[in-house]
Design a protein around this nucleic acid. Structure first.
Lengths: 213, 213, 213, 213
DNA sequence: GCGTAAACGAGACGGTACGTCTAGTCTTCGA
DNA sequence: TCGAAGACTAGACGTACCGTCTCGTTTACGC
């Protein structure tokens, strides 16, 4: 369960002893970083500002992270982890009631709610934007934040294939994009509003296709 | 056809006389901005650098644009306009051979090629990233750069509905997202490779649905 | 009477036709320059500001003057001329009542009053300061503004020598500095207050020396 | 002896820790400032230039000084201090051989030599000019640079009064201006050449007066 | 429990870029 | 053809952060 935290500083450096790391400072830095991104936006969030708000020396940040994006990413991962733990003891579950459409609609409705949660929105957008331009960070984001969820979609779709509810030649790794990508694009690029009705429609269209039967 | 250029400076200022604007400087600024974004990336592209490379005073930039994103957006719009004019006298065409799947596949293949063109990639990503975080700019991007293309999809899908190739209750404004959004998300978030095969698959899946017939 | 105005623009230039010069603009520029120096001080007085206040294009200033100091110098010369004309028909007089001490005291008291006149103080200081650092301008200032007065001192002192009130071997061009320089230094360098009592004392000390008789 | 260095930054700021100040940077800034004033003159000496030449960040200057004049003043004070220390262990001496005229002549000759020393001239003029226009700086200059010397004149003149060489009713604080002010004015305003002969004459005139005995 | 080494807060340092301001030049227009 | 207006290149201004580099001061481990 415990997600691997990289926390590697710049290579070539003598590598600080992480067993002696101050947990209090780390928490303070996470909190300060997230708060600043929410309040002031990503570009106006500075390492200097994070350090000041966290009551921490700048070097304590540079010792453990390599960039603003790096700090923010970990802070956000931590936030996500926390809220998952709050959510219950079985966080990585995808409903399987036998009704594929209903199951996916339920998950997408929860995703819509999360995307609208202001606590998540500012840091999510900040990281996503950085990921667009910075491929490395983008891939890291995908791997750490999105992949676990995507895997659950894949699992559920395979189950549906076995139950004969999805054609066997369909690649679940592509199929899931019909549910996720339209929502993602609307959110990322402000190309349209997002709502439960919208995601419900997506599921119906995707499962039965656009062409008449 | 002539796209409206905003070119509004900061409001409240005495508003410079745009009839006396130096076309040469504008061109030089566009070229410098795009070149720098390609060469150095968005964050390392600075207004100072653009001014220096364009052989222009900084104030000439601040007089006509309000931010780095603003400069880059206009530069990119200009680039897009130019390449459309090069493309021929019927730039905004969407094929209609009667075969909906083939038509959309052709357009998507062209889109894939464009997304991979290094001349477009860097500035596109830079703008897209800024649009994620800056809603106003994001909406402007959508309206000016994407909407014209989306409208062509809508038109083609409506024609297909009239021809009975698409179910009449389908909303084309949502349907088009099945073709565009997965590609967009893969490109924006590096969630997967993009290729002609991939987009072909998208079209097939979307038109006929995931569920068996 | 008409004092020769240099009004030379930068050398080598085609020399604008001075017969077509706008007297109204010149007056406006003089007034604006003096007003700004009084209100904002010399360093904050800018050519741009003078042009704006005078309701004149910047080029109108650059056409006729070569620098801020140049504008200000002419403006001040003009002011001095005006106030001399106001003073009466015999402006360049030095009293000669036969009582040398009384005559010089009277002139110095008038000088003290002038140095304290706020209308004169700011531009005078501005020019004097520039003259300290810029030898050419300094010499011009001395020649145009101070020399006429100094000559009157010399004339009066020569008369006093002929009347046997001043030793014949004294050089009047040095002697006059005992009256003028201490006052000038106190004013220029803020080394002490200036008053009628002070200048009276100067005259007494200077005429009779410091050593006992 | 140790002259109090103000080094106060802008008031209201959190006041940097002066114990951690880099002596090397300070020295480099002094040297650069003086060199630039000598080479380019006061107006063309910029903080940016000083920083560049000293190999120092601009903020290091703004941290410790509030203006160009402030930097230059301290740099000059430092230069003066240094050259006094070089001069010997009894820097603040005024000769007292019993011959008042000879003593003052000697000091004035030294002053003439110093005023002509190119190492001192440019910065001195720059500061003096600033002091003409900026009363606060002017008073500071007088207090820190001139007053110590003036006090020596006063002391010597009082000794002369006790010895009966100067009339007892003479105020030494005014009398000293007969020696210093004419020289100062000639130097400041370029009203005349300065030489040993000239200062010798001043002393003779001043001690014995202009009027015949 | 004590000495010591590393992590810490603090913040000065050499820098880059910001957005504003002014200088001085060049261009356009109307009188 | 000149004066007014103002856009232009150029670059200094003072501010904000950057990332690096000391400073002392905790803190916690091994002796």
């Amino acid at each position: 369960m415990a997600v691997q935290k990289s926390t590697q500083p710049a290579p070539g450096k003598p590598a600080p002893d992480s067993t002696r790391r101050s947990e209090k400072s780390r928490r303070a830095i996470y909190d300060a970083a997230l708060a600043l991104v929410v309040e002031a936006g990503y570009p106006k969030t500075t390492i200097e500002g994070i350090a000041a708000r966290a009551g921490v020396g700048k070097q304590t940040i540079y010792r453990w992270w390599s960039s603003k994006a790096d700090v923010l990413m970990e802070a956000f991962l931590d936030l996500a982890e926390q809220s998952m733990e709050e959510a219950g003891p079985a966080p990585y579950a995808f409903p399987d009631t036998g009704d594929l459409a209903a199951d996916i609609k339920a998950v997408l409705r929860a995703t819509v709610d999360e995307l609208r949660d202001p606590r998540f929105e500012a840091p999510s957008r900040a990281l996503a934007a950085e990921g667009v331009v910075n491929e490395e960070l983008g891939r890291e984001l995908v791997a750490k934040l999105m992949q676990p969820s995507l895997d659950l979609y894949i699992t559920r779709l395979r189950a549906a294939q076995e139950a004969g509810q999805v054609r066997p030649e369909i690649d679940p790794r592509i199929a899931l994009e019909f549910f996720i990508s339209p929502l993602a694009q609307r959110w990322l690029q402000h190309t349209g509003p997002i709502s439960h009705e919208y995601t419900d429609t997506l599921v119906d269209y995707a499962l039965h296709g656009l062409a008449p039967r």
